[in-house]
Design a binder for these strands. Structure first.
Lengths: 159, 159
DNA sequence: CTTTCTTTGACCTTGCCTGACCTTAACCAT
DNA sequence: ATGGTTAAGGTCAGGCAAGGTCAAAGAAAG
């Protein structure tokens, strides 16, 4: 855990904890200074860890009085969340893509750690041993089926 | 007993002794240097001696600040149940067979209702859309992977 | 002599970090 | 208004730092 990007990510996510109403505003240069890095590294963190797939939107303004605003997308109705995720998957999905979606579900409290582990293991390329164009399609089918199953169990213990 | 791979294996297993909470993190290159071997030999050791069958899971990340994490799966009564089930599955398994095993796990309290739903949905013949001799083999692989993942999380809330 | 296990090295992929250069906005002074 | 200055933030390519893969050579075991 000794890379700066992880630290910055952690710091920003902590900001959401402190009564921030799902929205956080920072100054890019200021933050860069705090972490002793170049300003563009902030952008790197934002584009790799605060994407829509991760459940965030980033807005900003340049010039004097500029800012960077990070908004956490609320997944109001969990049911909406599920269909949204299914859209996100599409007809095929890479292992990385699938793991991102599963992580998101975990962070949103839609699944437990165990459940996310079960899902990830079912989608690993080591398990889905078929050639590549088909494998990503199969993965999409399996992932969607699992998500829909979770949808049916929303409200059960463990969601 | 004087080949490097055995020494590396021994060394890594010793690391688990020193209050490491069933989890150990290393740097591949660093370790390779310590044992005067090429880095890829570390991978060889990991893939031959730290497999799931041996009771380990290996995770890693590349890039700056990368790491290799070795996780020791807990060994207790439930583990026996799990490995028994994996044996039961064999090289291929029908949808009926898989569902029977999942039902059994539910009855044994090894999984929750939600989890059993997730597993069943991932194994349905409607989802695993490939021709038949291969489909049952794929189903076996997926089911085993999921069961092993549960093993990995035994002790968590929800088991 | 064949098979299986080990060791090695060449090449690949992913992820992180930096710096040079660009764009936009606000605030002036004229 | 208008044009310059300053204060933000944005982009991109390149370098570096891991770890991954694979095939082939070498060593051990049977």
């Amino acid at each position: 855990m000794s890379n700066i990007s992880d630290l910055i990510e952690k710091y920003l996510k902590e900001l959401f904890g402190s009564g921030s109403q799902g929205q956080v505003e920072i100054q890019r240069n200021e933050l860069a200074e705090k972490f002793n890095c170049v300003p563009s590294q902030i952008n790197y963190v934002l584009t790799t860890r605060f994407t829509v797939e991760h459940g965030f939107v980033v807005e900003s303004r340049r010039g004097g009085g500029g800012f960077v605003r990070i908004i956490k997308l609320p997944m109001d109705e969990k049911v909406n969340a599920v269909s949204y995720l299914c859209d996100l998957i599409g007809r095929d999905v890479s292992q990385q893509g699938a793991e991102g979606i599963i992580r998101r579900m975990l962070e949103e409290g839609l699944v437990t750690e165990r459940e996310s582990g079960i899902m990830k293991s079912a989608l690993s390329r080591d398990v889905l041993r078929i050639a590549l164009p088909a494998r990503d399609q199969l993965r999409a089918l399996i992932l969607k089926a699992m998500i829909i199953s979770i949808l049916h169990h929303i409200g059960d213990k463990g969601d």
